[in-house]
């Protein structure tokens, strides 16, 4: 564990807390893509199949449980909570996310570290996480306006990815055999998807104005 990895995990956790706070405090999920949230739930369940077979640390196990539970809770709220579900921007959230699931799984069958069920699901989760933000970015682009909490949620998610890249650079320089092509290449792709959002986020921050994305 290095400082970048810890900062990445903490901003990831923070992003989920901000999202839960938004949903809980405003009883609304407007501006949030349910499809992206469903993809994250699939990502965590698929990736943490090793929860019962490999023990790494208490920290590791705790975080895995938090990520699985929070992502399922968010999807549950958006689908079934009587007030929250009413605020869902159904007509804006039309990205065909099942294609992402299919393509990621196909890629995992071709590119994986080992040909085992767990490893294929692990690779699948890495590929799917890389593109899972797309429905969310498309929804924001369509609605144009981004409320503060939604903007911060995506900012922290992007920060989490940026810190993971620093973590890999650090590990590459300090660990003799650190070569993780699948995770690193997917991670760079994932972070690149946030570049546009970050650009407009910083502009609005600099001008102290409301975050707006161009149509």
């Amino acid at each position: 564990m290095n400082i970048f990895r810890l900062a990445g995990d903490m901003t990831h956790l923070l992003s989920i807390l901000v999202l839960l706070l938004k949903i809980y405090a405003t009883k609304s999920c407007s501006g949030i893509s349910r499809k992206t949230q469903e993809l994250y739930a699939i990502v965590f369940v698929a990736r943490y199949l090793d929860l019962f077979t490999d023990f790494i640390s208490v920290y590791n196990t705790f975080m895995k449980v938090v990520f699985i539970a929070s992502s399922l809770a968010i999807v549950w709220c958006m689908r079934f909570h009587p007030m929250v579900r009413r605020s869902y921007d159904r007509e804006l959230d039309t990205f065909r996310h099942y294609f992402l699931v299919g393509a990621s799984f196909a890629l995992a069958l071709i590119l994986h570290e080992k040909f085992t069920v767990q490893e294929i699901f692990w690779a699948f989760s890495i590929y799917l996480e890389a593109v899972a933000i797309l429905p969310q970015l498309v929804l924001l682009q369509r609605s144009g306006n981004v409320d503060n909490l939604t903007g911060q949620y995506i900012f922290f998610l992007g920060a989490y990815r940026a810190f993971y890249i620093l973590n890999w650079i650090y590990r590459y320089l300090t660990e003799p055999h650190f070569t993780r092509w699948i995770a690193c290449v997917s991670g760079v792709v994932q972070t690149a998807l946030y570049a546009d959002f970050f650009y407009y986020y910083f502009i609005s921050w600099k001008n102290n104005s409301k975050l707006k994305l161009p149509a």
Binding site: H12, N60, M63, Y164
Partner: peptide, 10 residues
Amino acid sequence: TEQTEGHDEL
């Protein structure tokens, strides 16, 4: 090159 065993990242 040798690979670190298991996936230690989240």
